[in-house]
């Protein structure tokens, strides 16, 4: 079993964060998922050192922590690139072009699924439904939305990421943060960017715009239709 631990300075710094996380919950074990995000924010993946740290903070064995860390796909077991690119290949996105995007990126980057480019910039993975089906096909970078992609736009996107250009998600903050920074937000530490970016993409507004155009609204509570049998007998 590994006895690997973080250097003392790192450990002292992370312990302050860990105490804050643990303090949010009525029972300390509930802090395990955020703690795993925290150690991932330090190293870019969940290492043996990270697992030992979490176990130590919560009074668990490393086996208990490992059992949890390996269950959840967002915790990576190997170093991950600065930018994790996830291409949705669940049925809807795959049919709409997600399969073509994923194939194009594998070819363009010269990596397979769950692999990282040699420069350590970009990791590629096919992902499951990310709850943005009305924006299909969808690509996520560090879990920010890049909506309505094509193979060409996705290739440009990864080129920009590798060249270090600023990239803005379709629905997200003004600028993409790194994988480690994203993990820290997931651990529950604000980066102060919650108010940045759009509030609704175009498909989110489609129904509302039509309702405005046609004057459709929910009923006026002060002028409800009267005479309806509440038991539904008249229907």
């Amino acid at each position: 079993m590994s006895t690997a631990t973080f250097p003392e300075e790192t450990r002292a710094r992370l312990e302050v964060d860990a105490k804050e996380i643990i303090g949010r919950y009525p029972r300390q074990r509930s802090a395990l998922l955020p703690l795993l995000h925290l150690v991932q924010s330090e190293e870019g993946f969940v290492s043996a050192k990270g697992i030992a740290f979490c176990a130590d903070q919560l009074g668990l064995t490393t086996a208990e922590v490992t059992a949890v860390a390996t269950f959840y796909t967002m915790y990576k077991r190997r170093p991950t690139g600065d930018f994790h690119v996830g291409v949705c290949t669940n049925t809807l996105c795959a049919v709409m072009g997600g399969d073509e995007i994923f194939a194009a990126l594998k070819d363009h980057l010269g990596v397979g699924n769950d692999e990282t480019t040699e420069d350590g910039r970009v990791s590629l993975e096919h992902i499951e439904c990310n709850a943005a089906c009305d924006f299909a096909p969808v690509v996520m970078v560090n879990w920010e939305f890049f909506d309505n992609q094509t193979p060409e736009s996705a290739k440009r996107l990864v080129d920009d990421l590798r060249l270090g250009r600023d990239v803005a998600p379709t629905r997200g903050p003004d600028r993409l943060c790194t994988w480690k920074e994203a993990s820290r937000v997931l651990a529950g530490f604000s980066d102060g960017r919650g108010a940045e970016g759009t509030q609704a993409g175009e498909p989110s507004l489609t129904g509302l715009r039509l309702a405005r155009e046609r004057g459709w609204t929910a009923p006026d509570p002060d002028r409800l239709p009267v005479g309806d049998d509440p038991e539904g007998g008249a229907a």
């Binding site: 967002m74 939305f145 937000v185 960017r193």
Partner: peptide, 14 residues
């Protein structure tokens, strides 16, 4: 909140 929606998590916390 599912973890894979970073900006949504920021918004809800905000």
């Amino acid at each position: 909140v599912r973890g894979e929606v970073l900006h949504v998590i920021r918004r809800v916390r905000h």
